[in-house]
């Protein structure tokens, strides 16, 4: 190994601590870990069961990646993974924008997409098709069918689309049919929201007045 070392193994009272670099590629880590355990650190592997603590630094790993790590370490027989620690800030689950489902394609007549959370459709929603979800609905394309946001009763959700030409819109339990004057010629992005129990449509640029989430830039 002539490259930079990404894994440091330290001995402590309880066993071993694996310090993993948090800047390199995850696959590099896996390779190096495998190499170290199998080739260069053979002396670790003989003897009694050793507890291992893995420290990831600020890297955030998915469940699947964690499992990959565990498998490699466990494969050595006498190493027992005690803990895997990450200093990365945990991603809050319920914050809007995180539980977003991404769909690509056309939702055609007779097709229904249901989702718990927010929904982003990259494509059109055709007449006769429907999107139902508990959070917001965003359509990067033409919304021509039925969209129901906040189907479990949330009233603070929006339905946004590049081209808003719905057959029907529903937010929570408010059902709205577009009046004819909606069908305007200009193709600007619009969104639907509830204002005191009445559905309103507005230009996308007005969304920040509804959602007061200023975007902070680091200078």
């Amino acid at each position: 190994m002539t490259e930079k070392q990404h894994i440091t193994i330290k001995g402590v009272k309880e066993g071993l601590v694996f310090l993993l670099d948090d800047a390199c590629d995850f696959s590099v880590l896996l390779e190096e870990l495998q190499y170290k355990l199998e080739k260069s650190h053979q002396q670790l592997l003989t003897g009694p069961i050793v507890h291992v603590q893995v420290k990831l630094g600020s890297r955030h790993l998915s469940e699947e990646e964690l499992e990959q790590l565990r498998t490699i370490i466990r494969a050595q027989g006498n190493l027992l993974v005690q803990s895997i620690e990450s200093e990365a800030p945990a991603i809050p689950e319920d914050e809007p924008g995180n539980n977003i489902k991404l769909l690509t394609g056309i939702v055609r007549s007779g097709q229904t997409v249901e989702h718990e959370g927010n929904l982003l459709l990259m494509g059109d929603l055709n007449p006769g098709g429907s999107l139902l979800c508990t959070g917001d609905i965003y359509v990067l394309g033409a919304l021509r069918g039925l969209a129901h946001a906040g189907k479990d009763g949330r009233t603070d959700v929006v339905i946004a689309a590049s081209l808003l030409r719905p057959t029907q819109l529903r937010i929570a339990d408010v059902i709205s049919r577009p009046p004819d004057e909606w069908i305007t010629g200009d193709a600007s992005m619009e969104f639907a929201y509830l204002n005191e129990g009445v559905m309103k449509i507005d230009k996308m640029t007005q969304l920040n007045r509804l959602r007061k989430q200023p975007i902070l830039f680091k200078a």
Binding site: R108, S109, G110, Q111, N126, P127, G128, G129
Partner: peptide
């Protein structure tokens, strides 16, 4: 056109 859309969905 609606019905055609439905059929296209089924064919897809």
């Amino acid at each position: 056109v609606r019905d055609a859309d439905r059929v296209i969905g089924l064919l897809e």
